[in-house]
Each structure stands twice: as structure tokens, then as C-alpha cells.
Design a protein around this nucleic acid. Sequence first.
DNA 1: CCGGAGGCAATTGCATGCACTTTTTGCCTT
DNA 2: AAGGCAAAAAGTGCATGCAATTGCCTCCGG
Lengths: 230, 230
Amino acid sequence: MSGKHSLIRSGTTVDQMVRAIGDRIVTGYLRPGEKLDETSLAARFDVSRTPVREALGQLSAMGLVERRPNRGAIVAVVTQEHLASMFESMAELEAICARFSAERMTAAERRALETEHQASARLVQLGAEEDYEYFNTEFHSRLYRGAHNTHIHDLTVMTRSRLAPFRRAQFMLPGRLAKSWQEHDLIVTAIMRGDSVAAGKAARDHVSIVSEASAVFAADDRKPIRRDVA
Amino acid sequence: MSGKHSLIRSGTTVDQMVRAIGDRIVTGYLRPGEKLDETSLAARFDVSRTPVREALGQLSAMGLVERRPNRGAIVAVVTQEHLASMFESMAELEAICARFSAERMTAAERRALETEHQASARLVQLGAEEDYEYFNTEFHSRLYRGAHNTHIHDLTVMTRSRLAPFRRAQFMLPGRLAKSWQEHDLIVTAIMRGDSVAAGKAARDHVSIVSEASAVFAADDRKPIRRDVA
DNA sequence: CCGGAGGCAATTGCATGCACTTTTTGCCTT
DNA sequence: AAGGCAAAAAGTGCATGCAATTGCCTCCGG
């Protein structure tokens, strides 16, 4: 949510805290279950506890942080079951975006999607994981925007960010890039010919496969939590 | 979001404020665009500004209020376009829930759904708007829970609450109760026979119709508030 | 009569302080 | 030595205070 605000280079300390802490969670620098001590965070960012508290409250409202009254906040811990439910939701949301994209993308949007997608083929050949990941993100963002529905866009982006910590691992899997590109290709092809049903299905399958890949890592990765905020 | 927390009879002042203010927004007591003055709210609920501020921050993260740095908070104003996008999203979300419900509801859940639905027929005959609305909410909640997917559940509940201010008006439309019941009946029937496609379609259509009904009211009803939002 | 500069009141943003809750530590008992 | 209890330490929750920003009002010049 708050889609428009996230673009703003906000001056308020609270928003900076939300972004700072949120980023660290989403990028996996802060791991699920890790304790978020108000005083330490305040010291770490050189602000008072108030903005940190407000930020934790907002992150809690977003689901990234879990707050136990009087007992502090921790990075939200997701159970296997909840993780699965998020991936399943993600698949459905992406399916909706792809379906709507197939029906509603403007000519310019279709062109841009296809162009960028074709360009990314080069990155697959080179095995440029990092760069491909960037294109991958951009690719999916195009689908979300192409749906021309701000609320679905917000829900999807939000869900995606909550899944982010569990997705990074997948790229270590060998052959993943080529597979991903082919799946994208199915989606693009369907969208280009305006086949909303096929686009939806292709997008859903794409996420499902990512989900399976990530689930493997989610299983073990979770034990060694205790770690201090630097 | 924060699905589990919302059930807790939370002792913390901030959560009480979130519920108090959030309820007033959702029920339409506070209208979109209305100014939310920290000091007044603090005085009104007899707490200091701090919990009010935190509550406003969280509500802002949820999208119920809009916050302009240094310029105060207002109840979120939704444009016609955004409203439409939320209704469309709602239709898709409900479709997903109905689809999953058709596939996954336990025997007990199906039984309860059908029983309650049949019981509500009586309320239609009586024209008991208020009571029917309660059943209606319960009916939809059953669908969300029946999907057995906590994240979809959260997204749906959240979207529903944001639409709440725009839905109340629809019940003034004559014949609405009977129509609503018949649409519910289509959904229930499809779910009972495990027809996920039909259930999804019926649910989507149901919301779409509500959407059209509400749009009428959204059009005029909203002017006299103070629309200084860009 | 209109438009803009300056100042004032109102309001927000953040820091600090204090009370209360939880957790830890150390001692005593068994 | 293990368990339990109590006091201290740590950390959270909320109130209050002060600086900073905004919006308004006035007054002046054109």
C-alpha cells in the first residue's frame, strides 16, 4: 500500500526508518525472528526512539514485523504454511496481472515489454545473474502496471516484497535463468497475441515453479536466527 | 494484514486507537477527505498525541488515511478510478476465494455455509436489512476462510474494509436483498457441487453488481468534504 | 481592488522522561 | 546441584515539551 508515497524521497524521519528497516528485512539482512530493539535501532540510525517506534508500528501493519505488546518486536516469522499461502496468492495475483495485461496493455507497453524481454535473453547467455535479477524485477513490474489497476498493483507489490526474503535463494539453482526466461517468453507471447487466459496460466505456472524452488531453501535456512543489529 | 492481532482484545492504547479511528472510517462516520487532527483526536479519546500519531501512521500504512508530511492526516480520499480498481480487485479476490472454497472446504464448512445461507432467506422475506447485512458479512467471511489460504484471506479482508465506506449505500436500493440472496445462492450451489469455475464466476459477478450499485452513490455523495488532494 | 511579503497562531515532528512490564541475575533453600 | 524466588536491569508504552514547519491573517504597495 501507500504506493505513491514510496516513490517520494520523503524527508520525514519515520519514513526513512520504515524504508531503512523495511529494506533490511526485505533484502534478508535482517532475518525472520530477529529481535528489533528500539533503543539499538535508534542508536544505530542516530534518532530518538519515537520515530523508530512509529516505523515498527507501520512495518507491523504491513506484516513485515511482528509486535508483541510489552515484549518487543521481531522480524515477522512466517510458518511454512503461511509461506505457501503467500506463494499461492502471488501466483494468483500474477495471473490476474498477466490476464489484465493481455487485455489492456497499450501498444507502447506491449512494445516495451517485448523489447526488454528480448534484450534480457542476452543476460541469460552470459549467465549474468545479478543483471538478470534486475530485469526480472522490471519485467514483473511491467506486468503489474500493465494490468491498469492500481489496487491489484499495490497488493501484488506488497505480497512480492513480503516474499522477497525467500526468493533470493532460488537463483543459486543451476539452469534457473534459462528456465525463467522461457517462462517469461510464454507470458510475453500470450500477452502479445492478447490471449488473456494463456497469459494468466503462464504467469501462474511461473510463480508456482519459483515457489517450489524457494520452498527447498525455506525449509532449513530458518534455524540460525540470533544476530545483532549492526 | 496482522490477521492474528486483530482478534486480540489488545490492551495497548495504540491498537485501541487504530481500531477506534479505523472503525469510524470504515463505518463511514469519518468521511473521506475529513481532517484528522492529532490534538483533537487525542482529546476526544483522552490519551496523549503519541498513540494517536502511531495509530495514524499505521492506518496510513493500511491505506485508510493519507498523510502529508507536516500537513496533517485526512481520511483517505479515493478517486473514482481507484475506487473502480478496488472493486475490480475485490471481484477477483472473491472469485479466488470462491474457487478455492469449492475445492477445499471441509464437509463441516460446506454444511455451515449452506445452513446459514438458507437461514438468511428468512431475513430477505422479512426485509430485515440490518440483520441481512450481518449475515452477508458472515457469508463472505466464510468464503474467505474456506479458501484455506491465510494470505488471500488477509488481502481480501483488507480490501473489503477499504471498500466498506462505499458499500453501505447500496442497501437502500429496492429489491437488493433478494438479488443478493440469489447471487449468494449461485455461489453456494457451485461450491456444494465442487464446481470451482462456476463458483469463481458467480462470486466475481456478485461483486461486480455490488460495484455498479455503489458507484452510483460514490459519484455524488462525496463532494462536500474538502478535496484538496492532488 | 488585487497580489505579495511578513509575522503570528496552530499544528506537526521528534526528543526526552517516567511509569510499568518483562526478563535476567544472583542468592537462598531444599 | 537444581529449583525457585526476589531484586535489579533492561526494555516497552505513553505523556509531555520544544523546535520547526505550515497556513493564515494582516498590511502594504501597485
